[in-house]
Nucleic acid binder design. Sequence first.
DNA 1: GAGCCTATGTCAAACTACTGACATGGAGCA
DNA 2: TGCTCCATGTCAGTAGTTTGACATAGGCTC
Lengths: 144, 144
Amino acid sequence: MEQPEAVGELDRSVSYVLKQVHAAMRTAMDETLRPLDLTVPQYACLELLGREPGLSNSELARRAFVTRQSMNVVVHRLQESGLLTRPEQAAHGRARPTELTADGRTLLRKASVAVRAVEKKLFSPLSEERQRRLREDLAAVVAG
Amino acid sequence: MEQPEAVGELDRSVSYVLKQVHAAMRTAMDETLRPLDLTVPQYACLELLGREPGLSNSELARRAFVTRQSMNVVVHRLQESGLLTRPEQAAHGRARPTELTADGRTLLRKASVAVRAVEKKLFSPLSEERQRRLREDLAAVVAG
DNA sequence: GAGCCTATGTCAAACTACTGACATGGAGCA
DNA sequence: TGCTCCATGTCAGTAGTTTGACATAGGCTC
């Protein structure tokens, strides 16, 4: 059981290696964000709002790859913590544009720096050029 | 809200694109395996045992990137379905080597073909050469 | 305007996965 | 032998996520 990989050719499967990297990233981000009292979905929500203020709950959910129901919980908790605000009533349709508070922006800045560091460390085995290539290749898959 | 990506430079983050691909893969695999009455973790378990029979529950958990407790549930359900077997008592330590039954191997073959097709389709925007490169790059990240 | 469709927000229930905890079996060492 | 340490298996409790369902708001066509 202590042999490296035996005959299994799991390393030949892109999916498996991708899942492996994803798991490593998730774990690293979890540990980094815990001191800031943030979960990964919460951070994702803040990051999205930082980049594009006024997103609705459903839109946030789509971009964070979770259901609106899940994102709804995240948003409510962040709102209770005073990190973001939503108007009581929607101006136009039902969608209520969400925005960061000053506290939210401050925390996001800290979290963003920490996450960027994690990302940098995780992908450090790859040169800048290969990282760019990796990003492009993955983007091509998404586009397809 | 219908503009492509606005000023957000999310596409510049490897993590985000990686998560995006991972989500797409997960969804596609889910849909593909549902007709076979398999969840992704269940399939992962079968695939691992197909490649390396006799793995213990804890070992399966590690390789599928879940806790032993979670894998325990998966294994028990697959055992109830008659897809795999575990000895009642461990021969040596506490670890009980798990193996596929004939039914398990049959189902795995079907599932494996289906999953491979999904994978092939998902990564089809990339040439064979770029897929190999992508695999190598991701593997390098894992090794680090 | 009436009717239909879509999107959003929200509630409830089910499921999944995790954390924490404990007992057991074996290896290593004094 | 006796002790410690580690890994495995398992039970219980908790948290997060999803599925399913429903009401509402607006766009669309007729």
